[in-house]
């Protein structure tokens, strides 16, 4: 495997697939000196399961096409399932409300973190592409996540801060940053001066956790 990788969570592939812009990944892959990886758990969410649902079958086939063509690769790293379970157990026992652990995350997104950790140990530079908010908050600002849970659930939340260390070395991007870089590299050949705005709003509307303010900031970056 090449020495760089982007690991894709289901949420990012779903944002791109539902907007019909998975071809951006193909274009990005041509200029990326590394691998675009998915885990078995993510494959289940973006291909296996939706292939059985008429409503999302076409999008699932499009993602499968990327896998068949080698744009996306299914990771076969050893030990990923065991490490996924370890991290999952830590994540889902990090916050407690009314004496019970709050189960926040599932195997799909956590398998991406497990793979990232395995690759980092092998000195393979990598980032994880996750559009959903909870895992990103858990990695980048677990204290803030605890406060957020407390405010939303109207319950005192106890954070087990000793668990947080395990999450601190992951690097997260979203589909928003992927369409940004594709746009900057002139890989998206449609539209005019409004293209970046259109792309960012499109991924936001299909689940990418990016705020209006962030979109405005992103458009100003040269």
């Amino acid at each position: 495997m090449k020495q760089k990788a982007i690991i894709f969570d289901a949420s990012t592939l779903i944002s791109l697939a539902m907007n019909g812009i998975l071809d951006i990944l193909e274009e990005l892959k041509k200029v990326f000196k590394g691998s675009f990886l998915i885990t078995e758990d993510v494959k289940k969410e973006v291909i296996d399961k939706p292939l059985t649902i008429t409503r999302f079958k076409l999008e699932a086939l499009r993602v499968k096409h990327l896998l068949d063509k080698g744009v996306l690769e299914l990771s076969n790293e050893e030990g990923i399932q065991k490490r996924t379970q370890d991290i999952l157990d830590m994540a889902n026992s990090s916050f407690e409300g009314k004496g019970k652990d709050i189960k926040l995350v599932s195997a799909g997104e956590i398998s991406c973190l497990a793979l990232s950790e395995i690759l980092s140990k092998k000195k393979i530079l990598n980032v994880v592409a996750i559009d959903e908010r909870t895992t990103r908050m858990l990695v980048e600002s677990p204290d803030k996540l605890g406060e957020f849970l407390e405010r939303k659930m109207h319950t005192k939340i106890i954070s087990k801060k000793t668990n947080f260390d395990i999450f601190k070395n992951f690097k997260i991007i979203r589909s928003a940053e992927l369409v940004y870089i594709a746009h900057k590299k002139k890989l998206v050949k449609i539209g005019n001066g409004q293209l970046l705005d259109a792309l960012l709003w499109a991924v936001k509307f299909k689940g990418c956790s990016i705020s209006n303010q962030e979109i405005n900031e992103m458009k100003k970056i040269k």
């Binding site: 908010r133 600002s141 992927l178 940004y180 303010q213």
Partner: peptide, 19 residues
């Protein structure tokens, strides 16, 4: 949902730098 202030965990410039 993604517009709640808590959702922002890293500055846009830092995340762009990552990509």
């Amino acid at each position: 949902i993604s517009d709640s202030p808590e959702s922002k965990t890293l500055g846009i410039r830092e995340r762009i730098k990552l990509v």
